[in-house]
Amino acid sequence: EDAPSSDDLEQFAKQFKQRRIKLGFTQADVGLALGTLYGNVFSQTTICRFEALQLSFKNMCKLKPLLNKWLEETDSSS
């Protein structure tokens, strides 16, 4: 699987934040939901840093598919 470019990540982080707010979730909600869904709880700080593009590139790449999946799950259930 190709690693996303930093442009991709930036684009995704923006879209993710907009969708999250529109769906009415806090950063902490998302962190907990990831724990429920995938067994990895993320702190509010981590989600905040992801949205602000302040995580390392490697961590951004790791989180992106999880957050993407969460969006898909959340979209389909709302």
Rank of each mutant, 00 (worst) to 15 (best):
Q54T: 09
Q11N: 12
L71K: 02
Q15T: 10
E10W: 10
E73W: 09
A28C: 07
N68F: 08
S76F: 14
F12D: 00
G35T: 15
Q11G: 07
F50H: 00
F42A: 10
F50W: 02
T26L: 02
T74D: 07
L66K: 06
T26G: 04
L32V: 08
A13H: 00
T36M: 12
L34V: 04
K58M: 11
L63C: 02
W70G: 02
Q18C: 05
L67T: 02
N59D: 15
K22H: 13
L34S: 01
C48D: 15
K22M: 09
V41S: 13
N68P: 01
S6I: 15
A3K: 15
G39F: 00
I21F: 01
K64G: 00
Q18S: 11
R19V: 03
K58W: 06
Q11C: 07
F16G: 03
K64F: 03
E1Y: 13
F16Y: 00
K22L: 09
L32P: 00
M60P: 00
D2G: 15
Q54N: 08
G39H: 14
Q11S: 12
G31C: 12
L71P: 00
K17F: 03
F50L: 02
F25Y: 14
Q54E: 12
S78L: 14
D75C: 13
M60T: 05
K22N: 14
Q44F: 06
N59V: 11
L37S: 07
E51K: 05
S6N: 15
E51N: 04
L9I: 05
S76V: 12
S77R: 11
K69N: 07
A52I: 03
D75W: 07
L23K: 05
R20I: 00
P65R: 08
D29R: 06
K62P: 00
D29C: 03
D2W: 12
W70I: 02
L9R: 02
F50I: 03
G31P: 00
F50E: 06
L53I: 13
K14P: 03
S77D: 13
K58S: 09
A33D: 04
Q15Y: 06
Q54V: 04
L53A: 13
D2M: 15
Y38H: 12
Q44G: 12
K62Q: 08
M60H: 00
K14L: 09
Q27W: 08
A13R: 06
S6H: 15
Q15I: 15
Q44A: 14
E1D: 15
N59E: 14
S5Q: 13
S78V: 12
G31R: 04
L71D: 02
N68K: 12
G35S: 13
A52H: 09
T46R: 04
L32D: 15
K69L: 06
S43M: 03
L67P: 03
Q27K: 07
A33N: 10
Q44I: 04
E72W: 04
K69P: 02
G31S: 13
E51D: 05
Q18T: 11
A28D: 06
F25M: 07
D2S: 15
S76I: 05
R19W: 04
S5F: 09
A13F: 00
E72G: 05
L55G: 04
L63N: 10
K58I: 11
Y38D: 11
P4I: 14
E10M: 11
K64Y: 03
